[in-house]
């Protein structure tokens, strides 16, 4: 059928279910006449209406995921590492991070086996420093001089250039 729906035809003129047209509808990717037809179908089809709610929920959950902060110093270390470009640097991954990573892995493994340390409080952690700075600047700016307390957060956080 060429109605734009991929839900399949139940035969003999019965309306097809919308299937992935539901996602297209939510994303505004249906051309207006097709969208109209889809909405008309939804008005009379509880199955598709229910599926719409479910898929809309998943869509909203992913859309509301926050930005992820890279590990503290990630890009700064990369800059340092790449400051002396060599053929090896072009071909290999960051040796600095790898070495530290492998060494830490070894140390951690040794610590776990020898000393039985495995608690979450011993897990290496990267504080999300830029976010913490922003949290500080916003809370400090409440009831205080906005310019002094808040304007510095307009500069993206980076250290040690």
């Amino acid at each position: 059928m060429t109605n734009g729906f991929t839900g399949g035809d139940r035969g003999f003129g019965a309306p097809a279910h919308l299937g992935d047209a539901l996602s297209a509808l939510l994303d505004g990717e249906l051309p207006p006449p097709v969208e109209q037809g889809a909405r008309a179908h939804l008005a009379g089809c509880p199955a598709c209406a229910g599926e719409l709610v479910a898929v809309d929920q998943a869509r909203r959950w992913v859309r509301s995921l926050p930005l992820v902060e890279p590990p503290f110093g990630f890009y700064e270390r990369m800059l340092l590492d790449r400051a002396q470009p060599t053929a090896a640097a072009f071909g290999a991954r960051s040796t600095l991070r790898r070495r530290a990573g492998l060494a830490a892995l070894g140390a951690a493994a040794a610590a776990v086996t020898v000393l039985g340390v495995g608690s979450p409080s011993q897990a290496p952690v990267n504080p999300a420093v830029p976010r913490l700075i922003e949290a500080h600047a916003t809370s400090a700016s409440v009831g205080a001089d906005l310019l002094s307390k808040l304007a510095p957060a307009g500069v993206p956080v980076s250290f040690g250039r």
Binding site: T6, G7, G8, A16, P46, A47, C48, E51, A54
Partner: peptide, 9 residues
């Protein structure tokens, strides 16, 4: 299955 519809919870 083109006829498959996710059952609403």
């Amino acid at each position: 299955d083109p006829d498959r519809v996710i059952p609403p919870s």
